[in-house]
Computed example of a mutant assay.
Amino acid sequence: MQLPYLLKVAGDCLGDDDWLAKQPCPVIAIGSGVDRQADVVLPDESAAAALIAAIENSPTAALVLVQVLRAVEGMPVPHAMTLESLAFGLLQTGPEYQRWLTERSKPPALVVEGEGEAIEITREGSVLRARMNRPVQRNSLSVEMRDALVELLDLVRVDDTITCLELSAAGACFSVGGELREFGLMPSATQAHLLRSVHNPSRLIAAVADRVHCHLHGACMGSGIEIPAFAAKVTADRRTFFQLPELRFGLIPGAGGCVSISRRIGRQRTAWMALSGRKINSRTALAWGLVDAISE
């Protein structure tokens, strides 16, 4: 068995352009400067401690994460999303995710909490304004919310008189990501992959990205940042924070985040966010390019 991670000195010349792709583990470079032959670059070994702990807790998910991020660089978005979905489905059958499922106190169940439509929509001329409307669930990506987003984005796709979709959310935060209480509902990982291939808000928002503006606030976790990161314009309230928590469930970002986020902030910063599970604030998100502007 290979070690779950590999430390190397940043900038160390290895004489092989494909060296990183051949490594069956996350590679952490220690030192200053950008090192293309690494999945994450950190200033010193002390900064790597939390990262290493997370990798050791979910070594398979950590490996699959960096392999996907390495592979999708430069790949067309539809192909990259298919690869991400296949990898996500593979991990759904694995022991790390299955362990998390069995440790939950309640079995999975559909969640519908709140009144009115899941997404409230108004139109002013060529501008469509949509607000996710499940504040009690913190606008989690439930089956209901996913279906509502698919319907909304499909409308934008087919109606070219809509020149701009303004997407925001009601309540304390934009979205805390996938509705964890529904995880495990699909009868098989293959059926889940089929659903992600044909009924996926991420694929649709990527297809109409040039007409979409997402305004974010509060918590933006998992799919709560993975989906809006595809939009051509992303703004955020100054109190917004961003997080990719999937590794602790034995998974990788599976709502398009390996593609959308890495195209905004790069492979290494995306790997750091997903491996560490750490939050970043709106100032960091702006500096990295995860958001385009901070506005109230």
Rank of each mutant, 00 (worst) to 15 (best):
D154Q: 15
E113R: 11
H193G: 03
F249D: 04
G266R: 05
Q268R: 11
L69V: 02
R70A: 08
V208W: 09
M81I: 06
G171F: 03
L69R: 07
I28A: 01
S197V: 06
E179A: 06
G11I: 03
S197N: 03
L20R: 13
R211K: 08
P59L: 02
Y97C: 04
V40E: 01
D237C: 02
T235G: 08
N139M: 06
V208K: 04
V176R: 14
C214A: 15
A62N: 08
T235D: 10
A50N: 09
L51F: 00
D154I: 02
P107M: 00
V136K: 10
T93V: 06
P76H: 13
A130R: 01
G218I: 12
Q98F: 08
I55Y: 00
G74R: 09
N57F: 10
G256Q: 02
S126D: 15
E115G: 09
R146D: 12
Q268D: 06
F183A: 10
D35A: 00
P187G: 04
M186F: 11
L194E: 14
L63S: 14
C214V: 13
I119T: 09
F249C: 05
Q67T: 11
R248Q: 13
R238E: 12
D16A: 08
I227E: 05
S142A: 08
P78N: 02
F183N: 05
A118G: 13
E296W: 07
I119F: 01
I227H: 08
L83V: 04
E124P: 00
P43A: 02
P95V: 14
A49E: 12
M186N: 11
G277K: 02
V68G: 05
A21T: 14
L63A: 15
H215S: 09
W100P: 03
G15T: 09
R203M: 07
M186L: 12
G224W: 12
L20S: 10
P253Q: 04
R267P: 01
T235A: 10
E226S: 14
P245F: 10
E296T: 08
G224V: 09
C13W: 13
D159T: 14
S32K: 06
A109L: 05
E296M: 06
V150L: 04
L153S: 01
D210G: 02
S276W: 07
S262W: 09
T235Y: 07
E246Y: 12
D35M: 03
V27H: 00
N139Y: 06
F230Q: 01
V40M: 00
L91Y: 06
P95A: 14
V41A: 01
S188M: 04
A80I: 00
V234M: 00
Q67A: 13
L42H: 01
S295P: 02
A229S: 13
